[in-house]
Design a protein around this nucleic acid. Structure first.
Lengths: 204, 204
DNA sequence: GTCTATATGGCGATAGAC
DNA sequence: GTCTATCGCCATATAGAC
């Protein structure tokens, strides 16, 4: 019974903290607000996570894997590069559509503690080397144009992430603050990005 | 004498505030820290700007124009689209190279107050419509491939801004935290972005 | 495990002398 | 205009009852 309660409460706290932290960041969030969201009181937060910082780090870790998902399987598969990239872009934008505030959150908090950031990245099993090597092999094989593979990677990520990260600005600039229109735009992005990227690198 | 002093102090405050706010954001910054940077005391900050919020807004406005520079002249010129876009990308990345922390700062603070953001944008004389129309005309004329001009705009901005905004992350992922290597990468981006964008949209 | 009450410190803002 | 001193609040964190 106690354990069940514990699990329930911990989960409630994590969910509440995620909501609040993602919206307001570490500095902008109040323990009281998180407690309210979770339907408990402040003291319990400290009972479970000791400090605000530790609670925040738990959330950051929990959330980070969505922004840099594990794509080992896809990278190591023997699908043609066209499909690998296309699938990645599709799945990735799908994740962002479901979690549209993650990019802004991660970008916002990224600068706070580079050491912590590095540790999170390692623990998440992101292996950029594999991806870079994959691109290099394709370039050697002549299936895609030659370029710095890091540029290609940054380009793909930027295409996917930027429109979510800069949402408020772009929404005002290009959509007169019409949120529905902007969401439609984001949905269509899957196809747009695929086309744009593949058209410019595939050698046929 | 008094006026000279005033100007001097106000400038010192603005410079100090810019340094601190850009690094730590509104919530993360302390009036004390800004005062220290400016070589004055807290009380004087309030004498000049009354509240932290007002000081912050002054900085945000001051800084915003760098991130969305006035490009009317370029847009309205009769240069070929290839040169317009090429020049924009070059100049823009140059600005970001000189102010590498701006993208993260703007993205970080963008969500706080959408109304204020909108007012800043209007006051800065950014006219997205002109840019979109320019693209549309080029598409009709058959000089660039047909697509949603807003996608094209987001793509260009994302290519330029994202590598600066996500610097800490990308630096760890692809450059083993070697800052010099990353800065070289950013410098080369001017050419890379131009090539990538122009190659994929120009019809020859 | 969960609560109420409280300690503790920090920060924005102001008062008032010079 | 600039400073020192201080107010008043609010946020994190803890003590201690249940």
């Amino acid at each position: 019974m106690n354990e069940l309660k514990k699990d329930n409460t911990e989960e409630k706290i994590l969910n509440a903290a995620q909501t609040v932290f993602i919206k307001k960041g570490l500095d902008g969030s109040r323990m009281q607000e998180i407690a309210d969201h979770a339907g408990i009181n402040k003291a319990l937060l400290h009972y479970y996570f000791r400090t605000k910082q530790k609670l925040f780090e738990a959330i950051f870790k929990k959330v980070f894997k969505h922004v840099f998902p594990k794509i080992e399987m896809l990278v190591l598969s023997d699908l043609p590069i066209e499909e690998k990239l296309g699938t990645f872009i599709e799945k990735y934008i799908d994740v962002l559509l479901k979690n549209p505030y993650l990019p802004a959150f991660i970008l916002k908090e990224m600068n706070r503690d580079p050491v912590f950031l590095a540790s999170v990245m390692k623990s998440q099993g992101v292996h950029p080397e594999h991806i870079l090597k994959m691109f290099e092999k394709e370039m050697e094989a002549g299936t895609i144009s030659k370029m710095d593979p890091r540029d290609l990677m940054v380009n793909v990520l930027g295409f996917c992430i930027f429109p979510f990260a800069a949402k408020p600005l772009l929404n005002i600039m290009f959509f007169e603050n019409d949120k529905k229109a902007y969401n439609n735009f984001l949905k269509k992005r899957k196809e747009t990005v695929k086309k744009f990227i593949l058209n410019s690198i595939l050698i046929r």
